[in-house]
Amino acid sequence: MNNISKRVFMKELVSYKKRSSTYLSPIVFFLITLSLYPLALSNDPNDLALLAPGITWICVLLSTLLSIQNIFNEDYEDGSLDIFFSLRSTTLSLVLIKILVNWIFSSLPIIILSSTVVFLLFLPPESLTILLISLLLGTPVISLFGALAGALSLGKSSILGPAIVLPLSLPVLILGTASVSSFLNGEDPTFYFLLLLAIFIFLLPLICYACIGALRLHYE
């Protein structure tokens, strides 16, 4: 059991590494959208510093949308999901590993890159750690919703994914930006971090089982 999940994990890592577009396109998208905001809004450092947490969060949210189709699609098309569903005991660990690897490849680089907003959007440097922590706590939840949307819309039109993910991830967006702006106002952001963590812990089992149910629909 443990052995299988380890192998699946390694296989996922390799397959993501081979298809470089799956992890490069969110990064490129993130940088491009981030640089569009100063052009469209204003180049005044004071204005941008005020908007920086929100802009960063929106860019992160939108660029993770690009990768949600990748979570299950390839395994669905080459039939390996079929095999995993015949080994009933491994489905939960499979779904967990797939979400984890997808998070490592699509969200983690973006989180690291988002430290550039200190230069690009003039975010006050002292609040960068707060932004990074909020992203680290919030993006797993978005990945969960992305996995659910990907599982529901396997091989279907791509507009369905955003239509499911974006309304569901509203709380994460609100709490994530609120934590940074509350810190900038001189308040303690721990409250928001705990809430983000609570949302993640609460949703993790629920969404995993919903994902399994949704994937099973394609094999009935």
Partner: peptide, 28 residues
Amino acid sequence: KSADQAVSILTLVGAVNLPIIKKSVDWW
């Protein structure tokens, strides 16, 4: 048949999330 099940899953996930969304929108 699978459309019914998929929609049920989405409805349930939405129902679980709606209170969270409501509460967070209140905070915001």
